[in-house]
Nucleic acid binder design. Structure first.
Lengths: 214, 214
DNA sequence: CAAATTTACTTAACAATGTAAATATTCCAA
DNA sequence: TTGGAATATTTACATTGTTAAGTAAATTTG
């Protein structure tokens, strides 16, 4: 049915309108300023119309959380061109830092706020976006181990560790805590990158004990 | 003046009443369930009375944030008995994980939520609690470097890195993200500790390059 | 001891929030 | 054209933090 189709399409368009408005609001004015009424104002509908397209506010945020992951993955497209897996790992980390710092509100939604996770457990489904991201990381970590760039071990554990590290940096930075330990606010990003350098240096494979002169 | 003194004391007592009620609420029912009206209910005063003792809700949270740091430091009292600085560093990390996991709401307030930091920049003062905690960490890191347990370098940077790492673990865990990558929820803490082990192992001093057999 | 004044507290009220129920409008098929 | 479904709006409600106005209690003063 042609008409059914067009309706379907219109429905999606309004959904997109709502999401765009929400995005605009929370990128420009932050999380707490995304209200149903302000979204409605922007899209020029009445507030309650929004509930015809999203069950509740959390569903809007969950959709934004998804969009965030798409944005993040775009940033990682050029990674495949890096052959050296350790270099690639390093670059992945830097991209992560970069993404978080340039999209703090998205980052919050994706990795800090509890609401999106609640939605997932509510629906009883998996965190597909997170799973995909971590398994990409794990691939590179595994390659690093196989080719001897980093010490062999549990690739899953090491991936989670790497993630925790960069997440720690970003979340301390965007919650305005990291800057308390840095001379100027503008240096936060630089310190974060140095921090990542330090870690990468430290996990680089070391010679086996028996190869050390006594 | 004896009477002035007694009044002062009573004022502090009611402040404590308010803080205890808030604590009870947010430990038992989480952040979002701490409302002025529920606090008032517990302490059996009218809601607006609370504003005679705290400027606003954020000031209450800031006070709780302080209490959190006290609780955390208590946990670290026995650290001085550990002579080996690397072992001490390791134990500090474990304590941090332990604290975060057993006091998720406090942890959020201390290291995740933005409100307490806003309060600080609003007052134009320093983050004393954070400063103190990091400088204690830095002492041990410095000792590790001096005694050759870890590679020499910028102790400040390494301290921030260590902090970021454990913070990353805890914040991913309490935001219910870490559990998505672990077979069972109950294993999260164990994975976090293994993660910390991995890091400590990797930063342990390695022999200088010239000491390696060719 | 009584009156005046300061302090402590409460009641009433406001604006903003998310959201549900009831109502109105628009659109398409019969 | 009309009846019914889809879509949108209006109204309404319960909560929220917080302010302003009014009341009761305590303390100081005459």
């Amino acid at each position: 049915m042609g008409i059914q189709e067009r309706k379907e399409k219109q429905k999606l368009e309004i959904r997109k309108l709502i999401l765009d408005a929400s995005m605009q609001l929370f990128v420009e004015e932050g999380f707490s300023n995304v209200t149903i009424r302000r979204i409605a104002e922007i899209i020029e509908y009445s507030p309650t119309t929004i509930y015809l397209y999203f069950k509740d506010k959390d569903e809007i945020f969950y959709a934004l959380h998804d969009i965030g992951f798409q944005k993040m993955q775009e940033l990682n497209k050029d990674l495949v061109t890096i052959n050296n897996p350790l270099l690639r790992l390093h670059k992945m980390g830097e991209n992560y830092l970069e993404f978080g710092m340039s999209n703090p509100e998205f980052y919050n939604l994706m990795f800090v706020q509890e609401e999106p996770m609640k939605k997932i457990t509510e629906l009883g489904c998996d965190w597909n976006e997170g799973d995909a991201a971590i398994s990409r990381l794990k691939e590179t970590v595994t390659e690093c181990m196989e080719k001897g760039y980093i010490g062999k071990g549990d690739a899953h554990l090491v991936s989670l560790s790497m993630w925790s590290f960069v997440h720690g940096l970003v979340s301390l930075a965007i919650s305005e805590r990291m800057e308390k330990f840095v001379p100027q606010k503008e240096m936060v990003m630089s310190v974060m990158k140095q921090s990542l350098n330090w870690l990468i240096n430290n996990i680089e494979a070391r010679p086996a004990v028996q190869d050390i002169k006594k």
